[in-house]
Amino acid sequence: VTLFVALYDYEARTEDDLSFHKGEKFQILNSSEGDWWEARSLTTGETGYIPSNYVAPV
């Protein structure tokens, strides 16, 4: 499993987005949709879409 870490804070803009804080780690569930990836936060357990340019591989 490839994990990603948040480089910046992000505040959700829609109900499908996932808010997160810098340093939070994610498991990517689906990265085939372009710039927005479906991810699960390893901190909160919540699932939603995150901007791929806000995260980097651990």
Rank of each mutant, 00 (worst) to 15 (best):
A6G: 04
Y49T: 08
E46K: 15
I50A: 01
K22R: 11
T43Q: 10
V55F: 11
A12Q: 06
D17W: 11
G23E: 04
T14S: 14
E38C: 07
P57C: 05
I50G: 00
S41D: 04
G48T: 01
L29W: 08
A6V: 01
F26D: 00
N30W: 07
E24N: 06
K25W: 13
Y54V: 04
I50P: 00
E46I: 11
F20Q: 00
P51K: 07
I50V: 09
A6D: 00
E46C: 06
I28D: 00
E15D: 13
L7P: 01
S19A: 07
I28N: 01
L18T: 02
G45Y: 09
F26S: 00
E38F: 15
D35P: 09
G34D: 15
V1W: 14
L29M: 10
V5F: 11
N53F: 08
F20K: 00
Y10G: 02
T2N: 10
D16N: 13
S41K: 14
E24V: 04
Q27N: 08
A12K: 10
F4M: 11
D9I: 02
W36A: 05
E38I: 15
G48A: 03
G45A: 05
A6M: 01
G23Y: 05
V58S: 07
S52A: 13
T2Y: 10
R40A: 07
Y10D: 00
E33G: 14
S19W: 03
W36D: 03
L18Q: 03
E24D: 15
Y49I: 09
W37I: 06
F26E: 00
H21N: 12
D35K: 12
D35C: 06
G23M: 03
R13H: 12
T14A: 14
V58I: 14
S32Y: 12
V5Q: 09
G23W: 05
R13F: 09
F20P: 00
Y54T: 05
N53E: 10
L7C: 04
V55Y: 01
Y10F: 10
D9Q: 05
Y54A: 13
A39K: 00
E33C: 07
N53D: 13
K25I: 13
V1C: 07
F20N: 00
H21P: 06
F26H: 00
E33I: 11
A12H: 06
L29Q: 05
G34M: 12
A12G: 13
Y10I: 01
I50K: 00
N30K: 08
L42E: 08
T14R: 14
P57D: 05
D17A: 14
E33Q: 13
A39L: 01
N30E: 08
Y49F: 11
V1D: 10
E38D: 05
T44E: 02
E38G: 04
H21M: 14
E24Y: 05
I28S: 02
T44R: 04
A39N: 00
S41T: 04
E33L: 15
G34I: 10
Y54R: 07
P57H: 06
Q27G: 03
V58K: 04
S32A: 12
Y10A: 02
A6I: 01
L7Y: 03
V55S: 01
F4V: 11
K25F: 10
W36E: 05
S32L: 11
V58N: 06
L7W: 04
A56V: 11
S19R: 04
L18H: 02
L7I: 13
E11G: 06
K25H: 13
Y8P: 00
V1E: 15
R40N: 05
L3Q: 09
P51S: 05
E33D: 15
